Simulated scan of single mutants.
Amino acid sequence: MKIALSAAETSGDLIASSLVVALKLNEPNCMIDGLAGDKMIKAGCHRLWHMNEVNVMGLSEVLRKLPSILKLRKRISKHYLANKPDVFIGVDSPDFNFKLERILKKNGIKTIHLISPSIWAWRSNRIKKIKQSTDLILCLFPFEVDFYRMHNQKAIFVGHPLAETLKPRKDYQSNNNVLLMPGSRESEIKSLLPELLKAAKLMKDENPDLIFNISLANNQQLDWVTKSIDGIEIGVSVGDAHAKISNSDLVIVASGTAALEVGLLAVPMVVVYKLSYISYQIASRLLHTSEVSLPNKILGSNIVPELIQENANGKNISDHAMKLLESDNTKLIRELGRIHKLLKLQSSTKSVDAIIDFVNEK
Rank of each mutant, 00 (worst) to 15 (best):
K39M: 13
I76F: 02
F88A: 12
P94V: 06
L59V: 01
F98T: 05
P67H: 07
P67I: 08
R47S: 13
V91D: 03
H46E: 12
K42D: 12
G90N: 00
D92L: 00
L100I: 15
K78D: 13
E53Q: 11
K65D: 01
G90W: 05
G90D: 02
P85T: 02
R47N: 13
L72Q: 04
K65R: 09
W49N: 01
V54W: 15
R102K: 08
L70H: 09
H79F: 04
H46V: 12
H79N: 07
L59H: 02
V87Q: 03
C45L: 11
K42E: 13
R64P: 11
K65Y: 04
M40Q: 06
G58K: 01
V56D: 09
H46L: 11
K65F: 12
A82Y: 09
P94Q: 03
D92Y: 08
R73S: 14
R47P: 09
F98A: 03
F96L: 02
P94F: 02
L63E: 08
G90I: 08
V56Y: 15
K78P: 09
S93N: 08
M51D: 07
F96S: 01
D92W: 03
Y80I: 05
R75G: 05
H46F: 15
A43W: 07
L66W: 00
H50I: 14
K65S: 11
H50F: 14
F88M: 09
I76C: 07
M40C: 01
L66C: 01
I69R: 09
K74G: 12
D38C: 00
R102D: 03
V62P: 07
L81N: 01
M40D: 03
L59Y: 08
L81I: 01
L100V: 02
F96Q: 00
L100P: 11
H50Y: 13
P85V: 01
K42N: 06
P85W: 08
I69A: 02
R47T: 14
P67Q: 07
L63S: 14
P94H: 10
M57L: 15
F98P: 00
G58C: 02
R73Q: 06
D38I: 15
L70Y: 14
E53R: 15
R64L: 15
M57N: 05
V91F: 00
L72V: 09
E101M: 07
M51V: 09
D86C: 07
E53A: 07
F98D: 05
E101I: 13
M40E: 01
S93F: 04
K39R: 10
R102A: 04
K39V: 11
K99N: 08
I41F: 08
E101A: 03
F96D: 00
D92A: 08
K99G: 11
D92T: 06
L72S: 01
S60R: 13
L70Q: 14
G90E: 00
L63Y: 15
D95S: 07
V91G: 02
C45K: 11
V91K: 04
L66A: 06
R47F: 13
A43Y: 14
Y80K: 12
I69P: 03
L63F: 10
F88P: 01
V54I: 15
D38Y: 15
